[in-house]
Design a protein around this nucleic acid. Structure first.
Lengths: 176, 176
DNA sequence: GTCTATAGGATGATAGAC
DNA sequence: GTCTATCATCCTATAGAC
């Protein structure tokens, strides 16, 4: 196992700490201690603390945009099934980053740099609702999205086939 | 509407701020500004910031303990139905406090004062799983619990019959 | 690229006047 | 009970040596 670059070490440590402790709950000192370097080294690789956050969040947001795009124009029932599997795969690919997004939604939304995230999430939510715009359907969608995002980082569920179990609970909850 | 006491004002403001911004993400200054008093006044009514948190969390934890107790000894299927409705009612009665608990679970658990919360949640989770101890069932339970806890404070769902919609999504997801 | 040292501000908490 | 003023500590970020 070749050692990753310092920059990658920083991103990995920050992802873990942000996911559990939140953005504001994690200090540069916490990250530096986890990496084994000084705070100044963090700020050599990233201009500000918020840039670390932005760098972490960018790839899952890009993939989320791709997923939303691939759903447009499909029949509602087809889009719903693909949205469920696509969302679960997205969460599994970026567990810590997505836990972070759902953990710090209020902070993210009030910052200009992340204003597009809410729109993308709403698009996906609409597909997950199977075309229905009923308030109770949207509420179920939000329950499932938030629940899956938080559970995927819970170390308690290490041994399970996460993908199958998450897709299963989402289908039961969302498909009548 | 008679004005509540300062102490109640503090608890109400703190509940809202903690629920959205998290415990560490909310400063005494934030709370004081929301109440319209000074930081010193907060610390006259509560010895420490953490005591504000403990005071907020105590009533829902007490009700959760009562709920868990009332489920023991019942047949699994009965306990499951009562657990679903009981949990939804608990969340609706203490929306902000429970959002706060799920938002700051890591911080709460590492503090001694709140170590009993995890045990209570695990008891309720077991009832919600309908007696099954299968990992995939427990995972579904955790998805639903976290999802419901977070959605209940989302102002987006103001007009809906929350109780009916939340019980409905929980039943579909948890009862085969 | 990484470090130590430090600036400048926010934080939780205390002291003491009113 | 509530305030202003203050303390010690932590925070993000910068400066400059190596």
């Amino acid at each position: 196992m070749v050692r990753a670059s310092t920059r990658e070490d920083i991103l990995s440590a920050a992802a873990g700490l942000f996911a559990t402790g939140g953005y504001k709950g994690t200090s540069l000192q916490d990250i530096a201690a986890a990496v084994g370097c000084s705070k100044a080294t963090l700020l050599y690789h990233f201009a500000t603390k918020e840039m670390i956050l932005a760098t972490l969040v960018a790839p899952p947001v890009r993939d989320l945009a791709t997923l939303s795009e691939s759903l447009t124009g499909q029949p509602a029932a087809v889009a719903q099934g693909q949205a469920i599997e696509g969302f679960v795969d997205l969460v599994l690919n970026y567990r810590r980053e997505i836990a972070l997004i759902f953990h710090d939604l209020p902070h993210l939304f009030q910052s200009e740099s992340f204003s597009d995230i809410k729109e993308l999430i709403d698009q996906l939510a609409s597909a997950l609702a199977g075309g229905s715009a009923e308030p109770s359907a949207m509420l179920g969608v939000n329950v499932i999205m938030a629940g899956i995002a938080l559970v995927a980082v819970d170390p308690e569920h290490e041994g399970v086939d996460l993908r199958a179990a998450l897709v299963d609970v989402a289908r039961r909850a969302l498909i009548p």
